[in-house]
């Protein structure tokens, strides 16, 4: 449709009232599924994603196993009801590509060599899609890996930047992604300072790209704090004891 959609208003605010460098509210919960070895739920604005990890476990078919390390497998999948028009549950080309880039974003953080001849399966299910699903998927998956007790060098955080109505912004929602000019999804390992996922879709000048990359990395650093807090809520026993003590005092 050719009707003009205003993505930045006269005060410089975005469709959902955010400033250019403002993230949507992010909430992460750890260990939300009983069966999985590790799991996490991320809610970022109206994007809602579940990630689950199974493994290290026996690999099937066996010929896929590697003698010196674990095989990481990843499936990014969208629920049929996660988008406006029903999406067929059969994996699309987009989902196949995203499964690959998410796997390659997580792989450098995991000590796969600790578990030869096994596999680690990561499942990312998008329950509600409102932009930034691959990035939120990476964020949730790395928390789920930590929850599964898999040794890692760093957490991996995802956050996109982009350009809408000529302005470089962080963490695009669905409308901004659809009608904006550019989307730059990034995954980042905050302690190592390394980028493990980088894609771009749309025209940017060198200067704009640098700005977008910086915004995305700043976004990753903020979401990293949410990841850590979520893991601490489940695993930091001193904090847990303190919370319980506070409760009994009340």
């Amino acid at each position: 449709m050719d009707e003009e959609i205003k993505l930045i208003d006269e005060n410089g605010l975005r469709v959902d009232g955010r400033r250019f460098d403002e993230l949507r509210p992010v909430r992460i919960e750890v260990g939300v599924l009983k069966n999985a070895d590790g799991s996490a739920l991320i809610v970022q604005g109206r994007t809602k994603i579940l990630a689950a990890v199974y493994g290290p476990r026996e690999i099937h078919p066996k010929h896929l196993s590697k003698p010196d390390r674990a095989v990481l497998r990843c499936r990014y999948h969208m629920a049929p009801f996660s988008v406006e028009d029903r999406k067929s549950p059969a994996p699309s080309r987009r989902e196949t590509e995203l499964s690959k880039v998410i796997r390659e974003a997580l792989e450098p953080a995991i000590l796969l060599e600790k578990f030869p001849r096994t596999c680690i399966d990561v499942f990312v299910e998008v329950l509600e899609a409102d932009g930034g699903t691959r990035c939120a998927g990476v964020t949730a998956a790395s928390v789920a890996l930590a929850d599964a007790g898999i040794p890692m060098k760093d957490l991996v955080v995802g956050c996109a930047a982009g350009k809408v109505d000529g302005v470089v912004v962080v963490d695009l929602c669905d409308i901004e992604d659809k009608y904006g000019e550019v989307d730059v999804p990034v995954a980042y390992m905050p302690n190592k300072g390394l980028i493990s996922l980088l894609q771009m879709d749309g025209i940017l000048t060198m200067e704009e790209f640098e700005k977008a990359l910086n915004l995305a990395i700043d976004g990753c650093k903020k979401i990293y704090e949410v990841q850590k807090a979520a893991l601490k809520r489940k695993y930091d026993f001193t904090e847990k004891l303190k919370r319980e003590a506070d409760k009994s005092e009340e």
Partner: peptide, 17 residues
């Protein structure tokens, strides 16, 4: 004109900024 229109990182390594 020397602008970037698409990027794709692939394989399992990492890049610094």
């Amino acid at each position: 004109s020397g602008n970037i229109c698409a990027l794709q990182k692939s394989f399992s390594g990492t890049f610094s900024q």
